[in-house]
Nucleic acid binder design. Structure first.
Lengths: 239, 239
DNA sequence: CGTCCTATTGATGCCACTCAAAAACCGTGG
DNA sequence: CCACGGTTTTTGAGTGGCATCAATAGGACG
């Protein structure tokens, strides 16, 4: 059920059988979530967090003028709103981009883990600091990269993150996002995303059609993106 | 020495005398840092983290073309690179914007805290998730706010964060940043920052001269910024 | 098989960037 | 105390990347 999450943690450090059992038993239930349903709302007191089992969800903020900024896209295995455990409420909302399922973990169970499982606690803490690293990379994108480079970077990042949990097929992966969603991730307009994707098609670097990304030339795409996976902390070491 | 840091934590939850003592004894030494000195480098294995005692530091990433993106500005009391405890290295570098002092906390001491002080551990974890919340707000700024709104937002944020540790004088505070620094925070050019600041002067909202921000009309400035302090988690509650 | 959402393309406009240059500021040393 | 060089601030003129407006085509679904 949370095998992807364990894959993700085990890519960074050992997880003992005991810790795996503790984490599994921390789950109270599984919740299915419909497409476009916001299942966590900003500024509401929260008592549980959610591990994404399958599907695709995003964190976002709505602006006064109706625009939206997505602040992170979550792939299966991500502990989507673990931040709400220390914070107790969130500054943003979370919605499912496609029909998804999450494993619900009550904060009480997380608190118990911090009381008795220091190493597992550090792993969960690690997960939230990796989110922060992804946030920083997105800031770099939005602050300093061109539209072309930004799109390339996001496609490279998702390729790497899907690969960690085994959801890629070589240089191709399913990405059920609309161009509107991409625009809301990258601080651009959907129209400009469309022109940018056309440019990538012409350059034979990558195609994004019928909800699938096919990377034709990964090194060249990474080059356009100035992509370096160091911010994803893919190396395994004791924490 | 780390009084500002304790102020910051105590604005969010109780910190017992024992926890205060544990945190104080976790400090190995104090390190002075010269202006413009990068004291933590990206991608280098780290064995300690730093609490900012006084001064001003920022985290940043250098781009291939020589541009720079600042990803966070830290005020006294911030646990600047606590993220490196779970991560063990950082994806970005950290430099002092003015002569500063930091309290060095070895990761061994932090590990000991996670083994014996679950509540204090949660407070430290909280500090890193508050950084992530600030990251998200900056993403919203760079993705969806105009230059005018972005500058206003940063000035409001710093006002609020300096206020938490008692470093404001009403609606005014010392901010020893150059317009170049502001540009690197906001994903703009220094020239445009200059024109934006002139606009604020003309509108009589805020002035930024001789390293000091004087907010003439805070509500109006917050309005331009669409500033809401909920992402700073200023409410005190048990964690 | 009509309706709604998404993708695509063209025309036009504007916000912020680039290039250029002068003025103000600041620390340093004579 | 002032001369000096480097950095920062300020302003002008021109450009360009991405947004906006408008409209059609394509696809998914009931």
């Amino acid at each position: 059920m949370i095998d992807y999450a364990l894959n993700k943690l085990r890519a960074r450090d050992e997880v003992s059988d005991t810790e795996e059992a503790v984490l599994r038993s921390a789950i109270s239930h599984v919740m299915p979530i419909g497409k476009d349903v916001t299942f966590v709302r900003a500024d509401v007191a929260l008592t549980s967090s959610n591990i994404l089992i399958d599907g695709l969800v995003c964190r976002y903020r709505d602006m006064a003028n109706g625009e939206r900024q997505v602040t992170e896209v979550h792939v299966p295995g991500d502990f989507v709103d673990l931040h709400s455990f220390p914070l107790q409420r969130l500054d943003h909302s979370i919605m499912a981009l496609v029909p998804s399922r999450v494993a619900v973990v009550p904060h009480d169970a997380l608190r118990a883990i911090t009381e008795t499982q220091p190493h597992l606690t550090r792993l969960l803490w690690l997960a939230t600091t990796m989110d922060a690293a992804i946030h920083r990379e997105w800031m770099v994108s939005m602050g300093r990269r061109s539209a072309l480079s930004r799109v390339a970077h996001l496609l490279c990042e998702l390729h790497a993150r899907f690969a960690v949990v085994g959801l890629t097929d070589g240089n191709s992966y399913a990405l059920p996002l609309t161009q509107i969603d991409l625009a809301e991730c990258l601080g651009l307009t959907a129209i400009h995303i469309n022109r940018t994707l056309r440019e990538f098609r012409l350059r034979k670097l990558v195609t994004f059609r019928s909800r699938r990304v096919v990377i034709a030339d990964l090194p060249a795409l990474q080059d356009v993106a100035e992509f370096d996976d160091n911010y994803l902390f893919l190396d395994k070491r004791p924490r």
